[in-house]
Amino acid sequence: MEPSLATYLALSGILFTIGAVGVIYKRNAIGMFMCIELMLNAVNLTFIAFSRYYADTTGQLFVFMVMSVAAAEAAVGLGIIISFFRNRISVDVDDASILKN
């Protein structure tokens, strides 16, 4: 079976779902962060596949943008995680309940 556009999209869909389920399952903030990265990557794959099959560079540019956003997200997100850890000695999102009551 020659890989066609549908194959790439299917792979991307599977990866995206694994990432989404991971966000639900994981309870430490870093794990959730990594699952979100996986979802972003799944989307990148669709962009690249479409860019290949429609011969358009725009898709690749968009992937580039997504990567920059992911990098920014990593910087800020890890900063939040570190400062959270300093206050709570934990990265479990269940412990982030200071606004609850």
Binding site: L5, A6, G13, S51, R52, Y53, Y54, T57, Q60
Partner: peptide, 18 residues
Amino acid sequence: FYAVLRAPKDPVDTSQTA
């Protein structure tokens, strides 16, 4: 993705530019 499948089946020849 199934709905999108009316997309081209074969890759466009992009070896020159993209």
